[in-house]
Amino acid sequence: MKSIGNPSSGARKSHGVLLELSIGGCEELMELPCQILDSWAPTIEYLELIELRSLKNLPVLIDCLAKSSSHLKVLTILGVPKLMAASVGGIESWDLSSLKILSIDVSVEWSREASVGIAETVDGMLQRCCNSLHDLLFAGMENWEWFPQSIQYLTILQFLRLKNIGAEELPQWLGNLSSLRELYLKSCNKLKRLPFVDAFKHLTKLKHLEIIDCPELHIDSDWCSHHPQLEIKVDGQPVSTFLQARD
């Protein structure tokens, strides 16, 4: 499928209420008419766009939705290109104040030339849901060391999942996420260090740290002993097994 037709005038005039919209696996779909979101944006709570690798107008769609809907609670954008600066100019008018769950992947068609625009777009989105978001999945690029700085302002974030991050160490300010309960790190091939022991001392609610396929990450027994309340798993095994195998 390469296109989706505009809704008919009758559909636009109907009194139907759309709460969830999920489009996935349509790899030849090039354009999703903004009129579709215009019609139902005021009521949409759940939007999922997955594996739409030919889609060209993602920034326009997000701009359309975020300006019209204050009810959006779940937004998933995975495997979709064009998350670029085309929408940055309109970010200030976006209303994401009800967003609770955000999953976003910046790897599709990433380039150094587009990286500044992508960073501004992601940070702008996070700033507009800083008082509502409690679950974030962010998938980056291995050869891009950038880390979204706006994560540190997500005051009620409980679940943070980071995938394919290109940084060698996590920022110390992660220790300021006092509501954080679970932290997942996956396929971060360059990651070598966790934040300092003292940086995590305020994370009293953090109960679970799971690390999957991060071959360069070093965790020592001293770091673990300072967080006895924390369940740490490395590639599915308790961290004690990981440390014994390494020794």
Rank of each mutant, 00 (worst) to 15 (best):
L170C: 01
E120W: 07
E216M: 07
N176C: 08
V116D: 09
V122Q: 04
W110L: 01
I118W: 08
E145Q: 07
S150C: 14
L133K: 00
D220Y: 12
H218C: 00
F196R: 12
V197K: 13
T204W: 12
L177D: 07
E216F: 00
L160S: 11
A139C: 10
D213Q: 09
G140N: 03
C130V: 03
D135K: 14
G166W: 04
I156E: 04
D123E: 11
M141R: 15
I165W: 10
T121C: 14
E120V: 03
E216N: 12
E109L: 14
I118L: 12
F159S: 04
A199R: 06
G166Y: 04
R193G: 03
E109V: 08
S115T: 13
L174G: 09
I211L: 07
E210Y: 06
G140E: 02
K192G: 06
T155K: 07
E210C: 03
D213I: 13
E120F: 10
F138R: 00
C214R: 03
I151M: 08
K207R: 11
S115C: 15
N131R: 00
K207M: 05
S111C: 05
N189E: 10
G124T: 02
K201S: 13
D222A: 05
L183K: 00
V122N: 10
A139I: 14
F147Q: 10
P148C: 09
K163F: 09
Q127T: 04
C224P: 03
D135V: 01
F138Y: 15
E210S: 02
E216K: 15
L191H: 11
W144Y: 14
Q149M: 07
L162S: 00
F159D: 00
R181G: 06
N164A: 06
S178V: 11
I211N: 01
D220H: 09
L191V: 05
R181I: 08
E142D: 05
K205Y: 08
E109P: 10
I156K: 02
I151L: 01
K192I: 04
L160M: 03
W173I: 05
A167S: 14
L185N: 02
I219V: 15
L133M: 01
V116L: 13
I211F: 04
S115R: 12
L162D: 01
S187N: 14
L177S: 10
E145F: 10
R193H: 13
S179F: 12
H218A: 13
N176D: 11
S132C: 03
P148D: 02
R161I: 02
K163V: 09
I212C: 12
L217M: 10
K192W: 07
S187C: 14
E142I: 09
L191W: 05
N143L: 07
L206R: 07
L160E: 03
L157M: 08
N176T: 11
R128V: 06
V116F: 13
